[in-house]
Design a protein around this nucleic acid. Structure first.
Length: 655
DNA sequence: GAAATAGAACAT
DNA sequence: TGTTCTATTTCA
């Protein structure tokens, strides 16, 4: 028997091996096998099986799974993701199983016949050691033992697929504020949980949104709520995995990888704030969990709800085109706000304007909660000399150097190497140097110096996990001043009196073609979660925008979509970034030549922009962009994928 | 992705 | 002609 095996290596082809006759019973599509590969043993997935024999082939080392852990619905999703994201199927499948999965540790043996009685209650892992895997496989095949999953205390067996009909499924886009969203989710979830059906809900993170929802749902549904994802211990994660696999009436919460869970009778998928970039996976293979959620819902006829105060352009477009039923109330902000124009923004001159200090001082005095939004999280991310007019660059890779406050060191933004900082120009020695691009840490420090008896707290992606602890520590009734990035909009359940935007308009420069969309989402989510009474915008005169444009959701989306359509940008077209990195220029040009040849053969050169040449880390780097449908590029990109020093990114964040 | 192998650049 | 670093090939 020949098996064709997909490996998690960047090659889009399978490798063939022969299988020993006695293991034939356990050869199933999508089971994992250990195979000899280039002097080592690798784990791969069986993709195809052939009855014939070929004595020239190497023999597999082991069959790892008793039955495949990838069921039909996940297999279909993985195959699709492999093509949509131009990633070899083996890499996708590897990601679809928990990285820490050791099934045999959590499975126990039950004896069904006297000749296997010695094995009663033994863990599968132990049984594999003694009497050995061969014997266990044989016992299983002959029905002398059965396996039980220790978490759910049920028979461990392949899942039965629930076939759903088209009529069951409905795709909904809920646009509305957090309160109404939560109420809507709650109604939909309880209806199903009470009937013993399972619900999957995707959340943008664990520490803020995750904990908020987990707490609320756990109060209502008790032990039937489980978190599956990162930030928890292996054993808890495995417990969640097996419960999801066997559960009835469960609400499973997770971030990205939960989309690959083998949940039986999955009756609803909810994605909270699907526009968040945290749904994008960047390790192993690149995907966006809400794209996969939508695909799963469509092909398996599972109802899905995308809920948000500010959906992505793509989801909104689906709503407009009738692909979704749009529910909820579209936000129309009816709030007063003040705009303060600054001669120079904080990006150019790191001086907090007087009016900002007054605005904060006033609120502090009246004992109000304040939040200050700023787009960067760090202290200083850019320093330049006023005499020789040069920016501090990394001597090794020419990346921009930023200043880290605690260690007083210059740190390269690209290679992360650090250097001593001596408060003078690294090139001409002048003392006339100026910080630019200051971030939340810098503003926090300045405010702390000004308002010594106020609680000033930094809220960024890194610090948010400690925030809950901090707020409960405060018992003297003093109010809070929060300084942070867009993570501020993750503090669900927090009420702020005064919300101040400092440098919000700089996103125009920072977020590429999505800048306006990002500005809208940050603005809308901050208002949604923090519910401020007063809003201030401190903007650089040269970059200033009129905030009124962002107050009417429908108008904003309609205009933005029109622009995107005219410019042929996502969501009307997809981008594929081809990133070539080589030590030598010659080697790089050779690769570019090859890429060009492949594209020419497929007649795709008209979709190509670039190459744009860059030099960093002492390497040469070229960026090429293909603009079009993935189906056009699949063949070409999969062969380009295999070239050395080439990385392909579907739907890159910034162009 | 990583080991094996081929190639280039430099020193002896 | 050996040594070392870099690029390329190949894996069943």
């Amino acid at each position: 028997m020949i098996v064709h095996v997909a490996l998690s290596i960047p090659i889009a082809k399978t490798f063939s091996y022969s299988t020993p006759e006695e293991r034939k019973f356990f050869v199933k599509p999508f089971s994992r096998v250990a195979i000899p590969f280039h002097n080592r043993i690798l784990t791969g997935f069986i993709i195809d099986i052939e009855e014939k024999d070929d004595p020239g082939l190497k023999v597999i080392s082991d069959i790892i799974d008793i039955f495949p852990l990838i069921d039909g619905k996940i297999a279909r999703l993985c195959k699709w993701a492999s093509l949509y994201y131009i990633t070899p199927i083996g890499m996708v499948l590897k990601y679809a199983l928990p990285q820490t999965l050791q099934v045999e540790k959590y499975i126990s043996v039950r004896s069904l016949s006297s000749c296997a009685s010695a094995l009663e209650g033994v863990s599968l892992k132990k049984a594999y050691k003694n009497p050995g895997k061969d014997t266990i496989f044989q016992f299983l095949q002959e029905g002398l033992i059965e396996l039980r999953d220790v978490f759910a205390d049920k028979v461990f067996e392949p899942y039965h697929e629930t076939v759903r009909t088209k009529e069951d499924s409905e795709k909904r886009l809920y646009i509305g504020d957090i309160e109404s969203r939560l109420a809507y989710y709650m109604t939909c979830i309880s209806e199903l949980i009470n009937k013993g059906r399972n619900v999957l809900m995707l959340l943008p993170d664990y520490y803020a949104a995750g904990k908020f929802y987990h707490k609320i749902f756990a109060e209502r549904f008790k032990n039937n709520v489980i978190w599956y994802g990162s930030a928890i211990k292996t054993k808890t994660r495995m417990d969640a995995y097996f419960k999801a696999r066997n559960g009835t009436g469960f609400l499973i919460l997770g971030n990205k990888s939960c989309i690959f869970l083998p949940i039986p009778d999955l009756s609803l998928i909810i994605v909270e704030r699907q526009e968040e970039d945290e749904y994008r996976n960047e390790e192993g293979f690149n995907f966006n969990a809400n794209i996969l959620a939508l695909r799963l819902a469509e092909t398996e006829h599972i109802p899905i709800i995308f809920g948000s105060a500010s959906p992505s352009m793509e989801m909104y477009k689906h709503g407009e085109e009738g692909k979704f039923i749009v529910v909820g109330k579209k936000q129309q902000i009816d709030k007063k706000y003040s705009v303060v124009l600054m001669e120079k923004g904080l990006a150019a001159q790191p001086v907090l304007p007087d009016k900002l200090i007054t605005a904060i001082g006033d609120a502090v005095q009246k004992s109000k909660n304040i939040a200050v939004f700023t787009p960067r999280r760090g202290y200083i991310s850019h320093i330049r000399c006023l005499e020789c007019k040069r920016t501090f660059l990394c001597p090794l890779c020419e990346g921009v150097l930023g200043l880290h406050k605690q260690e007083n060191m210059l740190v390269c933004s690209i290679c992360n190497k650090s250097f001593d900082y001596e408060s003078k120009c690294v090139y001409c020695g002048s003392n006339l140097i100026r910080a630019a691009n200051v971030g939340a840490e810098y503003i926090e420090e300045k405010l702390k110096a000004l308002f010594t008896d106020s609680h000033i707290i930094n809220i960024t992606g890194e610090t948010i996990k400690y925030f809950r602890k901090t707020i409960s520590d405060i018992s003297d009734g003093r109010r809070l001043t929060l300084v942070g990035t867009q993570s501020l909009s993750k503090i669900y359940g927090m009420h702020i009196n005064k919300l101040i935007f400092v440098g919000w308009e700089e996103l125009v420069r920072m977020a590429g073609y999505r800048s306006e969309e990002k500005m809208f989402q940050i603005f809308m989510n901050l208002l949604d979660i923090l519910t401020p009474e007063e809003i201030y915008f401190f903007m650089d005169k040269k970059l200033a925008v009129n905030p009124a444009r962002f107050f009417d959701l429908e108008r904003f989306y309609t205009e933005e979509l029109k622009k995107r359509k005219a410019a042929e940008f996502p969501p009307y077209v997809r981008f594929f970034l081809i990133d070539v990195e080589k030590k030598g220029e010659k080697a790089g040009l050779k690769i570019l030549e090859k890429i060009n040849m492949i594209l020419e053969q497929e007649g795709l050169t008209e979709y190509l922009t670039g190459p744009m040449k860059q030099k960093n880390k002492g390497c040469y780097r070229w960026k090429l962009i293909l603009k079009g449908d993935e189906k056009l590029f699949q063949n070409a990109l999969l062969s380009i994928y295999g070239l050395s020093g080439v990385r392909i990114e579907a739907d890159p964040m910034s162009i």
